[in-house]
Amino acid sequence: MITNELAWFKSSHSSAQNDSCIEVAVAEEAVHVRDSKDLTQPPFAVGRDGWARFVRHVARG
C-alpha cells in the first residue's frame, strides 16, 4: 500500500505545542504509524492484532 493514500490522524491528546506526536492510519491489513513532526522518516506498519495488543496494554496503564 502506498502510505500517502492513507487517511492519517493524530490522537485527540496531541496538541500543536507537543513535539512527541505520532499519526496512525488504519488499513485492512495493518496499522501504519509515522512521526508527525518528521515526515521525512518512513512510516512503519504493525499487524492489526499486534496493534490491538499494544492498545490494550497502554489502556491498562
Rank of each mutant, 00 (worst) to 15 (best):
S20L: 05
Q41S: 09
F44Y: 14
A30N: 12
R48W: 14
G50W: 11
A25V: 04
N4Q: 10
E5R: 11
V26M: 08
V24I: 15
V58F: 12
D35H: 07
S20Q: 08
T3W: 00
S36W: 01
Q41A: 07
D19R: 07
P43M: 08
A59H: 15
E29T: 14
R34G: 03
A16I: 06
A59Y: 14
P42G: 12
S15F: 04
N18F: 02
H57N: 10
H13Y: 15
P43Y: 07
H32N: 12
M1T: 14
A45D: 09
S12P: 01
S15K: 03
S12N: 03
D49I: 09
R34E: 03
V55A: 15
E5Q: 11
H13R: 09
S15Q: 02
E23K: 05
R48K: 13
V58T: 08
P43R: 08
F54A: 13
V26S: 07
S14E: 00
A25D: 05
L6I: 06
E5C: 04
A27P: 03
N4E: 12
S20V: 02
D19H: 04
C21H: 08
W8K: 04
M1Y: 05
F54D: 09
V58K: 00
V55F: 12
C21F: 07
A59D: 14
V26T: 09
